[in-house]
Simulated assay, not measured.
Amino acid sequence: MKLLGIKLKILAAACLFSGVIKAQDFQGKAYYATKSKLDLGTWGATMSEAQKKQVQERLKNRLEKIYILTFNKEASIYEEDEKLDAISGATDSWGKNFAPGKQYKNIKTNTLKQNQEFYGKQFLVTDNLQDINWTLTTDTKKVGQYTCMKAVALVPTSDLYWYDFSWDRLRDNQAQNNSETADSLQTKSIKMSQIEAWYTPQIPVSHGPGAFTGLPGLILEVSADNTTILCSKIVMNPEDKTNIEAPRKGTEVSKKDYQEIVIKKMAEMRNMYSGRRGR
């Protein structure tokens, strides 16, 4: 009964706000701060706390970023606020190869179009939106001035971070091409990411930062693996409107195709480096 009451509150808020959406050229901007913890793995086990802190500070501009989500009723653009990097003079050319690019999402057409640059080549990754089977809970809390509700989900980690690269993925890919280990891979467990999201029915649009969409309200906070995304500011109906249009530049590929391109290139680089070291 309590969950039913929560759902009725969501519906009431959506009905109240829908009139505002239809009555004007509706648009909003949400500003998100992202923070990631650096997983140093076995390498970190040999480091002192001072060394770990030094590495963390050196990679701060990769681990802490600001993104802007510009949205209307059906579509959104999610992109990094690169002005901050320009002001600070921070550069991370290596990290940009594995960071999410400018992202267009359309809820109505279930479409994702995302710009990705990989070693100087431009790609336009075109696919469906990430399929997330959310479970709504009755938990509530305030994020800024907005009352939010909690939702949780489990998503395959490789689906969530398809633009990134890991040596484990390269090893699995090579093993898949080996007939002797193909059977063992079929029984290998898939790594899953636990997602906790907080959304507000006060802004009843199904948008959110990054891959996170599909809830009955704008997502203001997300925790997934080592990353937390928190909305710090929302501007409703800004005076300067943004054209929310799908990008067109770049070689069009699917998420799966893009992953294969990255894995192939990284394998080539590893083999080239190993060959030089063996001389």
Results as ranks from 00 to 15, higher is better:
M1P: 12
F17L: 07
I21R: 01
K29Y: 03
A30F: 07
Y31A: 01
K35P: 04
L38K: 00
L40H: 10
Q54K: 15
Q54L: 14
V55G: 07
E64K: 15
Y67E: 04
N72A: 03
K73W: 04
K73M: 07
E82Q: 13
L84G: 07
A86N: 14
I87K: 04
S88A: 15
A90N: 14
F98K: 01
K102Q: 09
K105G: 03
K113M: 09
Y119M: 13
K121E: 12
D127M: 09
L129K: 01
T135R: 05
L136Q: 04
T138A: 14
K141S: 12
G144P: 10
G144N: 06
Y146I: 02
Y146M: 05
T147S: 05
A151G: 11
L154E: 14
P156E: 04
T157D: 04
S166I: 04
R169P: 00
R169M: 08
R171F: 11
N173L: 02
N173A: 08
S179Y: 14
D183C: 10
S184Q: 15
S206R: 05
G210S: 05
T213L: 00
L215C: 07
P216D: 07
I219A: 01
T228Y: 01
V235A: 08
M236Q: 12
P247V: 03
G250D: 06
G250E: 04
S254E: 03
K255Q: 10
I261M: 03
V262D: 00
I263S: 03
E268F: 09
E268N: 12
M269H: 10
N271K: 12
Y273G: 06
R277Q: 08
G278N: 14
